[in-house]
Design a protein around this nucleic acid. Sequence first.
RNA 1: CGGUGAGUGGCGCAGCUUGGUAGCGCACUUGUUUUGGGUACAAGGGGUCGCAGGUUCAAAUCCUGUCUCACCGACCA
Length: 528
Amino acid sequence: MRTSQYLLATQKETPADAEVISHQLMLRAGLIRKLAAGLYTWLPTGLRVLNKVANIVREEMNKAGAIEVLMPVVQPADLWQETGRWEEYGPELLRIKDRHQRDFVLGPTHEEVITALVRNEISSYKQLPLNLYQIQTKFRDEVRPRFGIMRGREFTMKDAYSFHLTQDSLQATYDAMYNAYCKIFERMQLDYRPVMADTGSIGGSVSHEFHMLAESGEDAIAFSNSSDYAANVELAETLPVATASVDALQYVLVQAESEEGEADPDKWVLLVLSAAHSLNDIKAEKLAGVAAPLITASEEIVTKVLGVAPKDIDLASVEVPVYADYVVAAALSAESFADKLTAVDIRNIEAGDPSPCGTGTIEIKRGIEVGHIFQLGDKYSQAMNCGVLSESGKHETLTMGCYGIGVSRVVAAAIEQNHDEHGIIWPDPIAPFTVALIPMNMHKSQRIKDAAEALYAELTEAGVEVLFDDRKERPGVMFKDMELIGIPHSIVIGERNLDEQLVEYKNRRTGEKSLLQLSEVAAFIGAL
RNA sequence: CGGUGAGUGGCGCAGCUUGGUAGCGCACUUGUUUUGGGUACAAGGGGUCGCAGGUUCAAAUCCUGUCUCACCGACCA
């Protein structure tokens, strides 16, 4: 590609509303442009990277036995009513009407559509297991889109759905996907970690997230410093520990749940933990008798329900059920009211805690969630009556897995991990171009022009993706632009070395420079 | 949805307090200059100041309403 015939779209200045480095660099390097909140146009350079990421995902999914399909973005509401998510999903689900006033949604995910497909197409156990995936645009009307492409409302996702008759079969595919995900991120040369995760609203039991470690990550991950243990802080268990004392307690009064599972406005549950710790809402929501989502009482309500202000709470006289964090329960075990407390795990794990796996202590790092795999079970297949005839001729409901990768988010995460003060530094496998060809003052020197054109032709012929900077620009401008875009390798052709038929090679990541014979450039690049 | 802040050429900003019909840097065009790290000089093109209404002889500036955007929080892949 010649820059003179390309849309380079680089910018000197950082747009004011870009907060994180990847967002700033994506704008400056001309990868994306904002259309509206959470909606971005992919410019040519950005799209090249996005396609590289998508292709690696596609290749590894295919190798792992998944089969590609493509489902519609617009989905009929009745499918969502069938699973109950039309009511459950909330405002993040963008609902639209067609000209006949029929309800549709813009697909935030495709469990309903794929299950509807499979229940019609698959009728025998002989056709299982089946793992179908697509790489497609999703729309989620995020409460607060942020960080550019990192949390956009419209984004590219690879979503796979597998169907099985048995748990063993599901586990086998789940393991295959786990391994495929590791290969995908390894091929992209990114620093990733699989971590145990909560299943959230999608449902199911077993689940792992794949995170890119980065300062700007929105998730906190707990790692053991001496084992493989890694879990999202949302999920990571804290161990019952014997603690001599806690300096101060904090009390959180939350609404209880009625027998029918509804929030009961007249009943409350008290949660107690050390003031030094923080409440884990997800853990609290899972406690028996606690309403989910968590409804926390204001100070006035606490005073009304317990008869005293939050700061004056005396556990001995509290009349609502009390759950105490392990640390608090251990510290209070000798007290006379200890039998009123139910010791539970309700706090967030913290750096320095013993690892739940029994080995080592916990460190906390930030991560960007780029992949998530779930064992769904029969939540959707049950609701949508998706089953097959088994070997014994009985109708059996299928069990499902689902496996997502935020393809566009990977692009942003890759930049978070690979940049310096000059711009992006792409790993070779996802770089928009492999080589930048930079001629010095080509418009003043015929022999430089001839050498550059010949090398461009030779490399292109060899299948190398070259960005040939044939603009009539000063050298400094070209160097800055190519570094900003992050092309991993560059070749500089100038008068300085041409007498000896030499050109200069520079590695974007290491900064290492060397002189190459013009005639050996193609072989050198080919061997990278 | 709550809190905070911001909307002025493509980008970054000033002007607003104290109304007088818009300016700077980058980018863009042309010429000269420079020629291995965002050259210098000169001459240009481009904005009904988010939108609507009001006050006034006169509004980017004052008032009211409204829309949009960013950040923090709650929430979520």
